[in-house]
Design a protein around this nucleic acid. Structure first.
Length: 559
RNA sequence: UGGGCCGUCGCCAAGCGGUAAGGCACCAGGUUUUGAUCCUGGCAUGCGCAGGUUCAAAUCCUGCCGGCCCAGCCA
């Protein structure tokens, strides 16, 4: 029964509109587009739009284009366009057509002449400041430019001269002639073309003038036969202009613009301008810094495409301004990784443990499961010997009753190995515990005892003689403020603890062969992925495991 | 205070006149060689507020209140 397969949770008002348009016969097939400006890297907010546009096309048997909105050469770069293509593909989508607004420059120019000929556009010689003054304010109407009633012939000539490069930047402007008294400021004779003698990434120096977004976007949509033009809320006020242009000019069709709320995530930033600032001022380590919500950063952090797609589905699509909690994103990646990540052992902060009664030169190969719930993932062997490392956090000299780990006189299970009991603590001159002396029970090999005695705690470990050293990066939220973008200076709220670099972490030997596409769960500590940028063996922590003990511990310390 | 949009649980979000889905978070149990996973149960007599229409309203009407966006030759 395929009819009932549609996941109700993924329905939203846009899908409802599209379904209605299909049912009513308004459209036979649907066509969408994802239209980034190549002026920065894609982030999690774009992922929402990508999943929406491509997802809708996919689910309704339509098509989705990737279109670069490249109408402002001063801000755009090919590097960004390349990265955008890579990120969209990585997320798991393939466009039916790769388009560029700049491919339509010639048509756009022709449509502009059409507008001039109809008396619907004019060339203005007012300066930028004057235009601002003439525009009026939110509460006062604007007033007409002296050039507003220039003759069609003169407008045509001036516009031709603009194109011919006869004027300097800012000298003239092509404006739509709409309504200077409109309550909607976007309708007060908006700019259509500005003179900008800049080299364009794709068209080079062929154009000294460039069309504005409002004019370009609607026509580009129409040229591509877009049925539903999905964009974010801030463009709601632009819709009358979108429709005005398409009504005044003879385009193949008239797409419907529908706005939805952009994604906002707590404790981070999703503004290309601000992300750019973090990168250029070196507050972070490039656009792919794992602390950033960029797709390249999330990728390097170890987020999977599937988890991001799942996230985008869970948050929904509405017109309500909202802030999503990080916990939702974290839940998505945990859910994916819990199912797919290989289990291994790695000690982040090593504490040496000598097992006094274990033979000096002996090494044993013990068997460990790669995934406790999925036998298909197989097993591996891990070496065990007299000296091992355990996690510093897994030992407490004065341990509370509920602390199920090592302490003097207490017994714990070494995962897949033996039960050990701590008998002696060795400290340095400052009183810091630097080594533990333990006794093991030879009858508990593999981790269970013939007498069936209960050992509540199980801790991870790594054989000192066999361990490999690695660097590990631990990440925390990038900002200490839930909405850094709303503060006076978001830079001040960068979390000084957002990155913790650990060195000389001890990992089980199999990790020497890790590749950057494998996700691992270091048992009891979190999910990790090998870093792609650093030469030395380095793992990035994607996300921690849920930690009930940390929660209890915190409550105890507070109460 | 011109125009546009939005207000359902701590955070998201279904609902489209017939008596409040779901997810995340949280809380309480159970299983467990990861204090992980998994499982079970709990979590809005209430839908920004106040009136009205109706046998019946989160859904319709009116009026308030609160929030977001717009005065780039950016997108």
């Amino acid at each position: 029964m395929a009819a009932d397969d549609t996941d109700i949770s993924s329905n939203n008002f846009i899908r409802n509109i599209i379904q209605d348009d299909l049912d009513s016969g308004k459209h036979k097939a649907i066509q969408t587009r994802f239209p980034p400006e190549p002026n920065g890297y894609l982030h999690i907010g774009h992922a929402k739009s990508i999943c929406l546009n491509f997802g809708v096309a996919e689910d309704f048997g339509g098509q989705c284009n990737l279109r670069f909105d490249d109408t402002n050469p001063e801000k755009e770069e090919d590097e960004y366009a390349q990265a955008i293509e890579e990120d969209v593909r990585w997320l798991g989508f393939e466009w039916s057509k790769l388009c560029y607004a700049s491919d339509y420059f010639e048509q756009l120019y022709a449509y502009a002449i059409e507008l001039i000929n109809q008396g619907k556009a004019y060339v203005d010689s007012l300066s930028a400041e004057q235009i601002r003054e003439y525009r009026g304010s939110l509460t006062e109407p604007g007033k007409a430019s002296p050039d507003r009633n220039r003759s069609i012939e003169e407008n045509l000539q001036l516009f031709a001269n603009m194109r011919a490069g006869k004027y300097q930047d800012g000298e003239f402007l092509l404006r739509a002639k709409i309504d200077m008294a409109s309550a909607n400021i976007n309708m007060r004779d908006p700019a259509l073309y500005r003179i900008k003698k800049a080299n364009h990434q794709r068209t080079g120096d062929t154009w000294p003038i460039y069309p504005m977004y409002d004019y370009t976007h609607c026509i580009s949509d129409a040229i591509e036969g877009i049925t539903h033009s999905l964009c974010t809320l801030e463009f709601e006020d632009h819709r009358p202009l979108y429709d005005w242009v398409l009504n005044e000019v003879k385009t193949p069709c008239h797409p419907r613009q529908i706005e939805f709320a952009r994604l906002q995530l707590k404790y981070t930033i999703t503004s290309k301008r601000k992300l750019n600032q973090l990168v250029t001022e070196n507050h972070v380590d490039g656009w792919d810094d794992p602390r950033l919500p960029t797709l390249s950063g999330l990728r390097r952090r170890g987020y999977t495409p599937a988890s991001i797609r799942d996230f985008c589905e869970r948050i929904g699509v509405t017109k309500k301004d909202s802030f999503i909690e990080m916990a939702v994103l974290e839940n998505c990646i945990r859910e994916d990784l819990n199912q797919h990540a290989i289990r291994v052992m790695g000690v982040l902060n090593p504490l040496k443990v000598t097992i006094e009664n274990y033979p000096e030169d002996k090494t044993e190969d013990l068997t460990a499961k790669n995934h406790p719930q999925n036998p298909d993932m197989g097993t591996r062997t891990i070496p065990f010997s007299k000296v091992i490392y355990i996690e510093q956090d897994d030992f407490l000299e004065d341990a509370p009753r509920k602390f199920f780990r090592l302490s003097i006189g207490r017994e714990v299970r070494l995962r897949y190995a033996y039960y050990i009991t701590c008998t002696e603590i060795i400290k340095d001159e400052k009183g810091k515990v630097i080594e533990l002396i333990c006794q093991y029970d030879p009858l508990t090999r593999g981790g269970s005892s013939p007498d069936g005695r209960k050992v509540k705690g199980t801790i991870h470990w790594v054989s000192a003689a066999h361990a490999i050293d690695a660097n590990i990066n631990l990440y925390d939220r990038l900002f200490t403020h839930p909405n850094p973008a709303a503060t006076d200076n978001f830079i001040e709220y960068i979390n000084p603890q957002s990155l913790t670099r650990l060195t000389q972490c001890k990992l089980e030997p199999c990790l020497a062969e890790a590749d950057t596409s494998s996700h691992y769960q270091f048992e009891r500590t979190g999910y990790f992925v090998k870093d792609t940028q650093v030469a030395a063996l380095t793992f990035n922590r994607t996300v921690t495991l849920r930690d009930t003990w940390a929660k209890i511990d915190k409550q105890n310390n507070q109460g």
